[in-house]
Design a protein around this nucleic acid. Sequence first.
DNA 1: AACGTCAACGCAATCGTTTGCAATAAAAAA
DNA 2: TTTTTTATTGCAAACGATTGCGTTGACGTT
Lengths: 345, 345
Amino acid sequence: MKIGQATIKDIARELNVSSSTVSRALKDYPGISDETKRKVKEVAEKLNYRPNAIALSLRKSRSFTIGVIIPEVVHFFFSTVISGIEEVAYSRGYNVILTQTNEKLTREKSSIETMLSNQIDGFLVSYSKETTDFEHFSKLLDQGYPIVFFDRVPDIPKAINVMVDDYQGAYDAVTHLIQQGYQRIAHLAGPRNLTISQERERGYRDALTNHGISIDPKMIVECPIGTDDESQKITRELYEKSSVKPDAFFANNDMAAVGAMLACKALGMKVPEEVGIVGFSNWQFCSMIDPSLSSVAQPGFNMGAKATEILLDIIEKKVDPEKINLPVTLDTELLIRKSSVRSHS
Amino acid sequence: MKIGQATIKDIARELNVSSSTVSRALKDYPGISDETKRKVKEVAEKLNYRPNAIALSLRKSRSFTIGVIIPEVVHFFFSTVISGIEEVAYSRGYNVILTQTNEKLTREKSSIETMLSNQIDGFLVSYSKETTDFEHFSKLLDQGYPIVFFDRVPDIPKAINVMVDDYQGAYDAVTHLIQQGYQRIAHLAGPRNLTISQERERGYRDALTNHGISIDPKMIVECPIGTDDESQKITRELYEKSSVKPDAFFANNDMAAVGAMLACKALGMKVPEEVGIVGFSNWQFCSMIDPSLSSVAQPGFNMGAKATEILLDIIEKKVDPEKINLPVTLDTELLIRKSSVRSHS
DNA sequence: AACGTCAACGCAATCGTTTGCAATAAAAAA
DNA sequence: TTTTTTATTGCAAACGATTGCGTTGACGTT
């Protein structure tokens, strides 16, 4: 058996025709006799011919591949987004090449470099926590490279951003807590440099204000890392060292929420009777823990799908990037479970 | 600004030399004067030259890209594996192109096709639940394509398999339950066509037998889907319709374990006092649920990393595929949490 | 008989890079 | 001065596919 794939030339040789004829026959071009087409296709089948996508890419300066740059694969939300990306890309005939930055800026940059070398047709990016300067992205945008940002989006010209309505999600969550009768609602905030953290905090603040509750800065604590261990510690300290005694938590993410829940339980407080908790992201485990955790669901799959659709539309020039309504926001959904529902007594 | 990347020809034109000279200068070939090298590199820098990986791939018939085929991205274990794959691939200068099969055989096959078209250097595969015939893989192996299977591995000639020691992991888990004094240990088994399910069941059986406990077929129930809903239903039925009254569960995976736990709680039984539970995979939520779930940890990251290393070694001909000790097994680790530890009364 | 028409196909350039084999010139050896 | 060596560089083919244009021969038309 011959090693290496059969090429158009192999078919041509076998039939004593030129490779141009074979190429055209395979694509059902007019000007090729039906007889020849039949024979070509027959031999192609026999030799198990598969077009060489690399050669095609070179010829067309198009690779039918999009590059995805995300902070971490092992993250429920991001893996959901990837799933959405992969789904749409696959159905439209594109490949997905993936790199994770591990939240490192240098890696973000070098990934972009290799992807550019690989003649990527476009980028799908959620930038790293270290990224505060977006020069490396604006340069690409200026050169006309299609980029769609999702979830973590920059505030730079020409950027196309797809994100969830973090503000509304947070607002809904906090409003729900207020309606359940919780009064002293603390916020476990996320890293301050991320827009999503800022938006969620803004939703928290507005919900309180609009319901006539004043904002206590001591009730807002940052959880930069985002692990449950961290927020456990922070929650404990809040009760032990501070004068504030929250009766509810709205957390920037589910991990932090779980940490708060564990800490409260350890301190002998009952959830949801004494302390209400709402998280953000709706990770899988939300429904599995006890009490089940209320959370703001982010449509990760849809976000990946939507971002990919926009990107491919731009790549294929089906839409004018200038004419897209920006930013594209997707609705969140507040999933109310046990951790935030007081039995009406 | 010129659209499109600068090529070697652009550099050549600028300096009035041939493209061969530029190519050699950039690679520090001998036989090029230092003066020329300097100038070439200078212009390359100025034009922001980036080698065209596609052209290189065509020339060398090597794409420096590996294809990963997995059932689902949104799966803690698999996303961990991907992370390991990506890490090693990146550090060795390879790209990762990713597709998920969504457990569909047709999609598995078509993914292979597109990857072959893209001149992938090698495959990393965990096959779908629908896959029972491995002809499409053996054909590739016969043609000399490098493939490394992980987690879900086939029993076919020439296959290189990387997996966790499922047997030992299951054996350890069940032994632990026995030592905790549980007597009637049920097994929530996985899909029968997967080797991993078979191995885990074998570990379960041997652990019982070796500790003098006879095996009751009614204690072994299959959970083909693997959701917590499914196993909740199955668990309930086990208590209600069957004569067996398990006092412990060893589940094929964590989702099933959680289902069993929820069902038991709903039936008013105390975990771990009355029912002990051990899962498999050590998903993130294990430590977050109440009671925390004991589980057999699979080294997902290591598995991805190891599989990738082997694959790249084969691709780069650093090792002879025939000479690898097979199968490559990675040790599991039993993480004992609250769900399986009886307070010694 | 001379010309035009048209179907069917081949030639050769192209995409960007690498590389074996000349080719050229200058420097060294005879 | 002539020949040989050496240092630099260029030519051109190759990787696989596409495509504008030219070629060929069989027809039909006047």
